[in-house]
Write a protein that binds this DNA or RNA. Structure first.
Length: 672
RNA sequence: GCCUCCGUAGCUCAGCUGGUAGAGCACUUCACUCGUAAUGAAGGGGUCGACGGUUCGAGUCCGUCCGGAGGCUCCA
């Protein structure tokens, strides 16, 4: 038989040759290094016979797939160790993930695991690795596998096999499944695996979490153990060090260190913004407003509290009520007895979790002509959502926030153009912050199970979004079933410092709201037509955006966004008046300037300004006072030659207005 | 909401197996009036998240609740 190598060479092999045989035929060194083999692009065990005529490639430590492979191996070793230490444990699934692996277990009654148990488990795992236990694959009939796992009282494995059989397409029924054995442990597994446990070089168990079986919160909660593995200890250590560095970019930490915001038990899930943080927040709102004005958006203001009837009309009452804060109004001194839905008297009111219904109500107050379309309402409205306590996360997931929200009322034939314009608007916005295609991904979310509207309108809406993405040549992934209850959406996802994904931008098509709120416009034919609503946010929420921006910049915000752009440091008390005079001139030019006039050494003031990541600083002493010049010191240490204050006011003021980057002279310690 | 862990001064943290609280930074005061990453000294500040329980005695052990971290579920 023959096999083709990646370089096009053809290898002659005896019939029935395995991947290991192929590797040995190429060279002894490669045979030792081989972990697996790719057969026509599909990764497989070395021990399996090769089909004739395939294109093969040997997978070694240097291959892309190799880490995933040994992480999967490590998951099996973990399960083996767990069964050694905690007999009777039921095993669920244990896949490799982006930076490691996990395995889900149901421990016997009374066994509560905590991370203090990791050392003993890791020690047991090391025994299995040292023992050089081969991973042995066996293909068995469904019946044999079921019998085996039933006998071992492994109900999760039984369920997995039953589902495999049930979900198999009619033309390709599942008759056999593969089992992998390493040492005493046998698992249902598609594979592949390395030849033996010994190939796992260095591993670490990292954390413990609850995880619902099959991701269903109505089902059994299992104990998930997360870990990671590398070929070399050095690589594991480097990975752990990177994690530690990422934690230093945590926006919650930076927010505190830079004095931007904090959280308090007094209002769980809601940020307290300091003057500096509020400045950043307001600058972002100003940006949205300015960019929206240029693109035909009109800002509106709608109420905070709405009568329940509005939420019933919008559908939120049915689909979203659990996530809403409800309250009631009642006349002062009114008699009890007219209890509302929350048990208090007076009509039930709900804090808005979204701006849309208010915008529909506003839209309805005007008779719109087709000549007015599209109508674009924007509102940085304050929203409240009663998020589950376990879902809260710094600024990324809060209970009170503002979106850079807008609703576009468009005619059907304008959808394409408007969605396209929104995608461009998003691009323009992200460009300003230096985000590029590597920083975010587009996701198309389609109809969820819990939804309003006919399949026809969903088909149409999903198709519109898909076309807009494709016409813009934007790569995207599809998330089936992740749409809002009223329509499909394009989400723009960013990652935080630890790689977690957060949605910022969103563009959603809504055919439901116009029906429910009876929204109309008068067409050229002088009859009433339904508009289509587009919901869109680009920064997402200002809260979340600040979080993402802090983690991406490590706290070094763009110059125009910095709460303090320049700090003047007095040499001694007698320079305070001069410093304040200079600060006044710079402020009039539009710069945010503070004066550090404390009775401290210049070194001290520099150090504190550096730690606060203030982009520019300048010492004010006798020379500056006499000549009215400043020598700019950039964050990071780079210095410019002395320049007249008037020139600086001019240039820096322009940079702020134009939201330009301010480069430091050496390139190091970039202030922008 | 669920699982594991955590909660000590404004912040970051120390406090071994129970014997009734400590450091650095910050803050206040005083001295120094200083030229590019920490001047020195003194001082104030904590019902150890809250509430119960065990104990002669609880920051330390147990329970409940609140809050936080990581994850699951859910979502900007």
């Amino acid at each position: 038989m023959q096999a083709t190598l990646p370089d096009g060479k053809v290898l002659e092999l005896p019939d029935g040759a395995t991947g290991a045989d192929a590797a040995a035929a190429i060279g002894a060194g490669l045979a030792r290094a081989a972990l697996a083999i790719t057969v026509d692009g599909e990764i497989r065990d070395l021990g399996r016979p090769l089909p004739d005529g395939a294109t093969i490639g040997i997978v070694t430590e240097r291959s892309e797939e190799a880490l995933e492979l040994i992480r999967h191996d490590t998951a099996h070793v973990l399960a083996a160790a767990i069964l050694d230490l905690y007999p009777g444990t039921k095993i669920a699934i244990g896949p490799p993930i982006e930076h490691g692996f996990y395995y889900d277990f149901e421990f016997p009654d009374g066994v509560v695991l905590n991370d203090g148990d990791f050392a003993a488990i890791e020690a047991k795992m090391k025994e299995h690795v040292k023992a050089d236990e081969p991973f042995v694959r066996r293909d068995v009939t469904v019946e044999e596998a079921l019998e085996r796992f039933r006998a071992e009282d492994q109900p999760y494995k039984v369920e997995l096999i039953e589902d495999l059989v049930r979900n198999a397409p009619a033309d390709a029924p599942v008759e056999t499944v593969s089992l992998y054995t390493n040492g005493p442990f046998t698992d249902l597994c598609r594979g592949p695996h390395a030849p033996s446990t010994k190939r796992v070089g260095a591993f670490k168990l990292q954390s413990l979490a609850g995880a619902y079986w099959r991701g269903d919160s109505a089902r059994q909660q299992l104990v998930r153990i997360y870990g990671t593995a590398f070929f070399k200890k050095k690589d594991l250590d480097a990975h752990l060090e990177r994690l530690e560095l990422a934690r230093q970019r945590d926006h919650r930490r930076l927010g505190r260190e830079l004095g931007l915001f904090h959280f308090s038990d007094a209002a769980p899930g809601s940020a307290f913004w300091t003057p500096a943080g509020t400045r950043v927040f307001n600058e972002l709102v100003a940006l949205s407003r300015e960019m929206g004005d240029e693109r035909g958006y009109t800002e509106v203001k709608t109420p905070q509290l709405f009568d329940a009837s509005l939420w019933k009309t919008s559908g939120h009452w049915d689909k979203y009520r659990d996530d809403m804060f409800l309250t009631s109004t009642h006349d002062h001194g009114a008699a009890d007895g007219d209890a509302g839905e929350d048990g208090r008297s007076g009509p039930t009111m709900g804090f808005k979790p979204m701006n849309c219904p208010g915008h529909y109500e506003l839209y309805r107050q005007t008779r719109w002509s087709w000549r007015d379309m599209p109508v674009r309402f924007s509102e940085p409205g304050l929203l409240h959502r009663n998020e589950l306590s376990g879902a809260l996360h710094g600024l990324m997931r809060v209970r009170q926030f503002c979106q850079d929200d807008a609703h576009l009322f468009v005619m059907e034939d304008q959808i394409q153009d408007e969605v396209t314009a929104c995608l461009r608007f998003a691009q323009d916005t992200y460009d300003l912050f230096g985000f590029d295609a590597g920083d975010f991904t587009y996701e198309l979310s389609t109809r969820p199970e819990n939804r309003l509207g006919s399949d026809e309108t969903w088909d149409r809406a999903e198709g519109d979004l898909r076309r807009a993405l494709e016409h813009n040549d934007l790569p995207y992934v599809v998330h089936e079933g992740d749409g809002a209850f009223y329509g499909p959406k394009i989400d723009i996802q960013f990652r935080d410092s630890l790689g977690r994904s957060w949605q910022l931008g969103t563009i959603q098509i809504d055919y439901q709201a116009p029906e429910r709120f009876d929204l109309t416009y008068t067409g050229a034919d002088n009859s009433e037509h339904r508009p289509v609503v587009l919901h869109r946010a680009l920064l997402g929420s200002y809260e979340r955006f600040v979080g993402i921006l802090l983690e991406h910049t490590g706290g070094e915000l763009p110059f125009w966004l910095q709460p303090t752009q320049l700090v003047l440091l007095t040499v001694s008390d007698r320079h305070a008046d001069a410093a304040h005079a200079i600060a006044g001139d710079l402020r009039r030019a539009g710069l945010r300037v503070t004066v550090d006039g404390r009775t401290e050494t210049v070194g001290r003031k520099i150090r504190e300004a550096e730690l606060a990541k203030v982009p520019l600083m300048a010492v004010v002493g006798d020379v500056e006072e006499a000549e009215r010049t400043l020598t700019l010191r950039h964050h990071g240490g780079a210095e410019e030659p002395a320049r007249p204050v008037a020139d600086l006011a001019d240039e820096l003021g322009r940079a702020v207005r134009g939201r330009e980057r301010v480069e430091s002279p050496t390139g190091a310690g970039d202030a922008a």
